[in-house]
Design a protein around this nucleic acid. Structure first.
Lengths: 226, 226
DNA sequence: CGCACTCTTGAGGGAGCTCAACATTTGTGG
DNA sequence: CCACAAATGTTGAGCTCCCTCAAGAGTGCG
């Protein structure tokens, strides 16, 4: 909101550049050549698949420290800024000894896709929303207070629901005493165990093992998005 | 059927081995070390994610010529034989100049996952089943007559539906004259355009571009599964 | 203040799940 | 080879969950 828009700010090293995007701006589009990848410095990013029938599928949200845009040869998903966002852009590592790094990034992207599949496969609205909240809490390492910078529409297109169902489900959780809202964009978890019970054992376990997973899988501050 | 079960048949070269699995046998399980990958010589394979709540999500079917098991560090999905199956097993390429090959395999796996997400995101039963049939036809290069070696339960767990809905939907397609069945495992497409219209423009286009995609993406006989 | 956008909430209907029964196929043991 | 059991597939009836349609409330911005 300060006139900065996809401008180069400064070059940290000859090939890495810092970029700023304003809320809603497109970072790259489906079909663009995938000649670089990004790390989120601040803000939130979403990746989107647009389908011919008009339906939009969000495949991931990316927060501070996450990397995205590694997994695509030619971009088969678009990336957009959910909020005002600062990114570091790095050239793609197509060859050389570092391609194993890219390999791991691809594996993380696949993990992310599998998580998305998990959210979409035969689960009802309560399970999807509860799992989404817990995953967001995990990703942001904020078990008490979860910022939700994306719109209800974004959440709906991520979970395969309508905004109405998302809104109603969240309201239901508030009524049942699982969470509290401070405005639509900030969610406080009141009954963590209750939410876990709704989302299913798996998500609860995943959260318990958060620390272990980071070390075991080499996450160390870089995630694959949600 | 003939007493062969996961036996080594012969070694084509020092590290590649041929394996046979009987219908329903487990090829590898979630959590196994991913130290090799497989190519389907004959038969059909499914990859499955098992969730704590008992729900099973099939992420792909693999037919003659497909490779699978490349995409997992430690296996995060199980692989099982849908029918009696012959496989070639190769050691994983964890390093060396060939890791770019593995890279492409990972990208294909990601494509496959995205296709799965596409099938699961906000589509009704007709769209899912029609898309599934068209994708199977494409994968098997058999636009007229589609073998369906997997059970209705497998299809249901792939599409996020119940076996009842899958069965009813297929019966509906027969009644409407889109397909014919010769037993539950063999499906003949009668009205291709009609099926495409149900599945959505996207799938139809994908099928039209089948040849182009193979060459453009270097598919040449190796697929990522469906 | 008025417009645009997002979020929330209600009422009604329809798609798909659950429960249930039956048909068909496959496998097994006598 | 047949009888029986088990697995798989099909179909119907009822009900539930979520989508659609609709209206209203809250918020930011010009």
């Amino acid at each position: 909101m300060n006139g900065l828009s996809a401008e180069f700010q400064h070059a940290v090293n000859p090939q890495d550049t810092t970029l700023k995007f304003r809320k809603g701006e497109i970072i790259f589009s489906q079909g663009d050549p995938g000649d670089c990848w990004f790390e989120v410095v601040s803000g939130t990013v979403r990746t989107c698949h647009f389908h011919v029938d008009g339906h939009r599928q969000l495949t991931g949200f990316f927060y501070k420290g996450d990397v995205f845009g590694v997994e695509y040869g030619a971009r088969d998903a678009a990336a957009e800024a959910v909020t005002n966002t600062t990114l570091t852009r790095r050239p793609a590592l197509n060859d050389g000894p570092n391609s194993s790094w890219q390999n791991r990034a691809l594996e993380r992207a696949l993990d992310s896709a599998n998580q998305c599949i998990f959210l979409l496969g035969r689960r009802n609205a309560n399970e999807r929303v509860a799992a989404f909240l817990l995953i967001a809490a995990k990703r942001l390492s904020a078990l008490d207070s979860i910022p939700l910078p994306m719109t209800r529409s974004d959440i709906a297109d991520h979970l395969g629901l309508t905004i109405h169902t998302v809104s109603r489900t969240i309201s239901g959780f508030v009524r049942q005493g699982f969470i509290e809202l401070e405005g639509p964009q900030l969610c406080r978890i009141v009954d963590l165990e209750g939410l876990r019970a709704i989302a299913g054992e798996e998500i609860g376990v995943a959260i318990d093992n958060m620390g272990a997973m980071r070390s075991r899988r080499g996450y160390a501050g870089q995630g694959a998005g949600v």
